[in-house]
Design a protein around this nucleic acid. Sequence first.
DNA 1: TTAGTATAGGGTAAAAACAGCTTTTTTTAC
DNA 2: GTAAAAAAAGCTGTTTTTACCCTATACTAA
Lengths: 217, 217
Amino acid sequence: MHTEKVNIAIVDDHTLFRQGLAHLLTESNEINVLFDADNGADMIKKLPLHPLPDVILMDITMPVMDGYETTKWIKANHPGINVLALSMFEEDKPIIGMLKSGAGGYMLKQSKAGDLVSAIKGIAKQSIYINELVSGKLLRNIQNNQPVKNTPIGLNPNELKFLELCCSDLTYKQIADMMNLSPHTIDNYREALFQKFEVKSRTGLVISALKNELIKI
Amino acid sequence: MHTEKVNIAIVDDHTLFRQGLAHLLTESNEINVLFDADNGADMIKKLPLHPLPDVILMDITMPVMDGYETTKWIKANHPGINVLALSMFEEDKPIIGMLKSGAGGYMLKQSKAGDLVSAIKGIAKQSIYINELVSGKLLRNIQNNQPVKNTPIGLNPNELKFLELCCSDLTYKQIADMMNLSPHTIDNYREALFQKFEVKSRTGLVISALKNELIKI
DNA sequence: TTAGTATAGGGTAAAAACAGCTTTTTTTAC
DNA sequence: GTAAAAAAAGCTGTTTTTACCCTATACTAA
């Protein structure tokens, strides 16, 4: 039996993870790792220097250019490339967010190597692959709620800035000062985010944002 | 030139990272990965089935049995084995905590593979290895404060449980109910933790605990 | 015009943060 | 075994911050 190897690239800001994964996948003899990158911007820079990959393994939270943005860029500029999201967390929002951004699949970093290889091969054939670990959650979401819940967690730059400053010991008053806005405006942001994240406290907001990989600490 | 390979084991709950790293290090031809484990308890179970490793790469936050506890167990039962802590974060407390637990070094997962190989080889020769990325911070701490600040952040089981429940949308009242304690007792825990972590708000506490890898979300 | 959005405001109730003190339980030492 | 010491748990307050109302203006876009 003889099949063509799948060409992939890996985009993740943890060097050891990225390079380790590259070796691990190369060993499988079914995957060929063309290159790896530190973040989305780095990937865009490196993409023209190699043959186009079939699949790109994509981390979500990265400095400079994150997984959502990078995936959208790929689907806009190279729609033939399939993106497989790799995440630490099993939360609805990053899953849905990445799929909405154009990812063809979502795997947890806790997965086994064999499963990842299967996912990469599956996704290369245009099929959607959702890790069994996350599929239950996603299916529940799709079944219980309306159509996959239209919450792409759209945050404007100010809300995102506020969210980052929320992850600290600062009071809202201090955050308002730092953003040069009235505390009341900050209160509007807070309320809007509480609704979007369906939480009732600042702590809940922070935890939720972290789990959804919107911010990193 | 011919040197003996360094025998190591890897303890980390992220399967892809663990296995990827194993392959990456094996490729270097200077490291021999004897086995890997999901957490401290798993490691203790697997240790007798292999030759004793020279170095163990140790994650900090893991389910069942974490890095601090596991490192202490190793130094108590196999003092000849050197532990190299591997972490995502560059915070004082996990660094100091792991070193106090008996680790011989501390590396970030953002490090390059070559640096990790150097660290493993260095540590195998009993030398202390602190990642250049973290050394500045640690040195500052050692220099500014008294002897490495005797804050191993000693948390009793109740405080730790409280800390975990703090990472949620729950009010203190609800946390008190869940722990079957008076809200006043919870208030004592809160105050004690605020002092230990040097924070002034619940949000600050949660962020600090996460950065210090005392809890995971 | 009208709708939408970002900003800013006042007021209120709940929760969180902080301080000071008492009782109970556990540890330790004699 | 018991008394002293220490730790854990509990209570009464007050002040500050959060959380949640509802309203208003200014600017933009359909």
